[in-house]
Amino acid sequence: MEIKVITTPLDDEVIKGLRAGDKVFLTGFIYTARDAAHKRFIETLEKNEPLPIDIKGQIIYYCGPSPAPPGKVIGACGPTTSSRMDAYSPKLLSLGLKGMIGKGKRSQAVKEAISKYNAVYFGATGGAGALLSKSVISSEIVAYEDLGPEAIVKLGVDKMPLFVINDIYGNDLYEMGIAQYKF
């Protein structure tokens, strides 16, 4: 199938061109953050303190990798279930976050925030942790090191294979897929 090649930081023109169901190769930098890091982001914002990373134009990957074996940049690094981050995402999108990578359905509030703030939700294939690790070319802990596997890691990625699940037009690949193939 046709593949769209995109790079970070994502600008609005690129996001406008993405449609649910597109396969994309993503190149650039992304940040891992899952349950505990999101909780801490929101607590930081509530105290009117700055986030440890500038999320404007950036992409967060919901991922807790397996340990890197010697000589490797990272271990297996597939996505975790995104819905656990639903409570936090609209706030981050309002602050300029442009993309999220994970697996599974998002809440209505997240989908609305995606449209409102011109963002995108990508799916990485769950359980394809080895394949996804091949596209990671650098890995550096940038914040919350004390959270161990949940620390924020800046990943350099080259042609990371993703699918667009929720676009700015309100399309949802999960709903479209079921509607088309249910019989």
Partner: peptide
């Protein structure tokens, strides 16, 4: 039957081969 579905399964096959060659887990949730 779905082209996207086929693509996903191809990724899974490729994933299994990479895991074997690189000796890293198939999925990070071990």
């Amino acid at each position: 039957k779905s082209p996207v579905g086929k693509e996903v399964i191809r990724e899974l096959i490729s994933n299994a081969q990479i895991a074997k060659n690189e000796q890293i887990p198939i999925c990070q949730d071990t």
